[in-house]
């Protein structure tokens, strides 16, 4: 893979919360690259720093040390984010939630709604389009979150333990949907997880411990 395929690179990236003796170093000196179309898993125990690293990659937090370099212009619309918990806006229907990032990005409501319905069909929950988030299950909610990313067609999809609160079967279904969405859009996919089975489905696996990157495994394509 050439250097031009690199979407994002972390160089000695660090993130510390607080200061003085009570300061918490969440991420320390991480170096990694994310290439276009890459499938990456960040694994580690709870508190190892994987969510914070994901937030640094997403640009939701600024590193307190080192840098996170993005190649070329990188807008909010280029990153699709999926959280562990419910991330749908309660007062909007599933379709409106899926259309929201497109409208926020400047699309007309009609265009955004059509794209949202298409994404919901791809994630097989088109029948829930007019339901409110409180009326659907946790798994359906995560698939709606995936549909929201799919409708956005970003260059980079970041998923923070997307199956963490789901049972095994539902979790697998959500992961399948997520991989399909990444395939459909050609986006790079970065997933944090402590489930080895999920990590095994990714081509690159980073292991974290105590905020540091302790192991990197890459499968040759």
């Amino acid at each position: 893979m050439s250097a031009t395929d690199v979407l994002l690179e972390c160089r000695d990236a660090s993130r510390t919360f607080g200061g003085g003796p009570t300061a918490v170093v969440a991420v320390q000196g991480v170096n990694c690259r994310i290439r276009a179309g890459e499938r990456m898993a960040i694994t580690g125990a709870s508190g190892s720093g994987k969510s914070t690293l994901l937030h640094l990659i997403a640009g939701l937090e600024e590193p307190t040390g080192g840098t996170v370099l993005r190649s070329g212009p990188f807008s909010a619309q280029d990153v699709g984010m999926i959280f562990q918990g419910p991330s749908l806006i309660p007062a909007l229907t599933v379709a409106e939630n899926v259309a929201l990032p497109l409208v926020v990005g400047g699309a007309s409501e009609e265009t955004a709604h059509a794209a949202a319905l298409a994404a919901l069909r791809l994630t097989a929950i088109a029948d829930l389009a007019e339901h409110l988030p409180e009326e659907i299950s946790g798994g359906q909610g995560q698939r709606a979150a995936v549909a929201r990313v799919l409708a956005l067609a970003p260059r980079l999809i970041l998923a923070d333990e997307p199956t963490g609160r789901l049972d095994g079967v539902t979790g697998q279904r959500v992961l399948d949907t997520l991989l399909s969405a990444a395939d459909a859009t050609g986006a790079a996919l970065v997933v944090t997880t402590h489930d080895p089975a999920i990590a095994a489905r990714m081509t690159t696996r980073l292991a974290m411990h105590g905020g540091r990157l302790v192991d990197v495994q890459e499968e040759k394509s």
């Binding site: 749908l88 806006i89 007062a91």
Partner: peptide, 15 residues
């Protein structure tokens, strides 16, 4: 939380 989600989805301060 709603505003936080909207921000993650790219909503600007003005919006």
């Amino acid at each position: 939380r709603t505003f936080a989600i909207a921000t993650v989805l790219g909503a600007k301060r003005r919006q």
